[in-house]
Amino acid sequence: MAKTSSRDRMNNEINAGSMADIAFLLLIFFLVTTTIVEDKGILVKLPIWSEEEPDITKLKERNVFAVLVNAQNQLLVRGEPMRVEELKDFAKEFIANPTNRPDLSEKPTKAIISLKNDRGTEYGTYLSVYNELKAAYNELWNELAQKKYGRDYSEDMPYAYRKAIREEIPMVLSEAEPTAFGEE
């Protein structure tokens, strides 16, 4: 075969010496443009917009966990001032009500958390309050999942398991229209 012999003769090879330089160039470009930002946050499902305000006066008072945050970033939980650090444990106790106290929720499915803030509240405070309330639910879900299935509650769990847990302890967090007393 003449063809092959000619190929052999030419012994062609692309010079790969500059490959490293090209790769370096690209590497440096990506190094400079990179921002290793972990996009994380608190996932929230907002309620569907409706013109009329939900009526919470029909609910029994013992089932409502009212959290108010004023423009000075102070908390009022069920009529008592409280620090953010204490909120999680109190919320957990309220939802689960292990000792069947008459002033806490009848059962987890009936518990409702009502969060109300002012237009002057700092967003950081609002988010930490929200975070604590979510943490309370997360811990309760974890405890229930450990008891039922022997593992922590997580997104990797089978959907049926998650659904069963969410049905037993549903997260009901209602956010009222903020007040406008404070300075924005």
Partner: peptide
């Protein structure tokens, strides 16, 4: 930003709800 007051945040939330964008992630 953590130092922003809730006024503008509430307005944004209301607007999102009105536009039917309900899945929201508060970056933290």
């Amino acid at each position: 930003d953590g130092e922003v007051t809730m006024g503008i945040v509430s307005d944004i939330k209301t607007q999102l709800r009105k536009s039917g964008q309900l899945k929201v992630n508060y970056s933290a």
